[in-house]
Design a protein around this nucleic acid. Structure first.
Lengths: 249, 249
DNA sequence: TAACAAGAACTGGTCGGACCAGATTGTCTC
DNA sequence: GAGACAATCTGGTCCGACCAGTTCTTGTTA
């Protein structure tokens, strides 16, 4: 008789990883705490130890726990020793809500990565690159009438990744992909703020600058767009405060 | 009778992942190629299919393969869809040699990440932060007489990560940790170029600027250090060319 | 001979038991 | 009380059994 209630579609392992992630990030376990042994967790949940072990390995790869062989599994000081997967877990637990700090950090890194790629691409671009970017933009425009915002977010992410690919700077592409999950969360918020139309027009402005080989112009467009988004975010936070003030006094 | 010759200390899974990584990155399989089925690979190597499957899952997490259920496992277009683990694998296969492109990209990202952290820390730092950084620096100096360069590299990485931790910008810390493996490779090269003494003196200059709350000064020190390193790297490449010229004509 | 349906074989996916090696704790003897 | 040995604990690894869906092969019917 299993004690685990399996949510539709989740394997035991997925259920276990989600449950432990939630508990760790919710503070049920603090950094340094020793988790129950794999056998205890397996017995408690009514699943096999190998599944638990596999789940714990995943938690370790996510930076949430440290495994000490022969000793036990300890909650890691994950905000200090964690990695991008830690951040992805935090963001996912928050329903893909990005805090101000996360947003600033993501966008600054994006400026660094995509800034380099844009400059390089403006220098090296060929005609097929422009055709490629235009085709992708048109595809996004087609989709914008009937696709969910998450789908659109994926398409925007891929457009900007294509900048890195076309620039020939493979490493920048790898870094950008590494930030995929948090970037999708960002694009969802961005599309909600500006709407798909505005966002697509901006893509076309990038293409114009790339066609003109204006690396500094393209970089500036990126930087200005980022600054505007952050400014709007701040204003929305201010608006929320004003609305609360008018309700409560 | 196992057909796998196990290198000392490697599990079947580790052996399998290394073998496949080497073959994929060496071009034995091209992006889009379908790998032999898990059962075929298992039979060929004389190990269990589950181990092969587990290894393939790891290769997928590394961005090297795409798994299509019921169809097969295909080599991914990993330079376009891969992630930081892809880069780590490439660097590791090259005996931790960093190409110029990788070095430039890493350092630019580091400038973005640590630049933000330095500025923030100079603004918010307290006395204990300075004490902490001084203690870490002294520890590094103690180790520099008898430690291997890889150990020193780890200590330098942690010193710079501590900047992020002390800045209170957790997200920057997570990003920095994400770049841990390639950063270690960089620090090894850096220490070989400048020597531990010089590198430690530079840490102390950072501390002086942080103590003085000179965010722009600290950022400049970082940027200048990076530019100098890249310049020397270029000169070394030039020196190699000159030496070859004088040998061959 | 061609088309359709059923069965077999294939694919990756998941799970749990068996066993391993080393660390830690408990028990017994001196 | 100290030391030696055994038992128990820990995480670690591997494998066979079974699953679900896809694709290919074979047999039957028109």
């Amino acid at each position: 008789m299993k004690s685990v209630k399996i949510t539709a579609g989740l394997t035991y392992k997925e259920f276990f990883v989600r449950k432990m992630t939630r508990e760790i990030l919710a503070g049920k376990w603090n950094p340094g705490d020793r988790l129950p042994s794999e056998r205890e967790l397996a017995a408690e949940l009514g699943i096999g130890k190998t599944v638990v072990h596999s789940g714990i390995e995943q938690l370790a790869a996510m930076g949430l726990v440290d495994i000490k062989p022969k000793s036990g599994v300890y909650v890691a000081d994950y905000m200090n020793t964690g990695n991008i997967e830690t951040l992805n877990a935090i963001v996912h637990l928050n329903g893909n809500e990005l805090s101000w700090e996360v947003t600033v950090a993501i966008l600054d890194l994006r400026l660094a990565i995509e800034g380099m790629a844009l400059r390089a691409l403006c220098f090296t671009r060929c005609a097929e690159d422009i055709v490629r970017l235009r085709a992708m933009t048109a595809q996004i425009r087609d989709h914008s009438h009937h696709s969910a915002v998450e789908e659109l977010a994926e398409l925007f992410f891929r457009w900007h990744r294509e900048i890195c690919i076309l620039s020939g700077k493979s490493i920048l592409t790898l870094f950008m992909n590494t930030m995929h999950d948090v970037s999708i969360a960002f694009w969802v918020n961005y599309l909600r703020m500006y709407g798909p139309s505005f966002a697509i027009d901006r893509l076309e402005r990038f293409i114009t600058l790339i066609e003109a080989r204006d690396g500094e112009g393209a970089y500036k467009l990126l930087a200005i767009g980022i600054a505007d988004y952050l400014s709007r975010l701040e204003n929305e936070a201010g608006d929320k405060r004003e609305r609360l003030n008018s309700i409560f006094g």
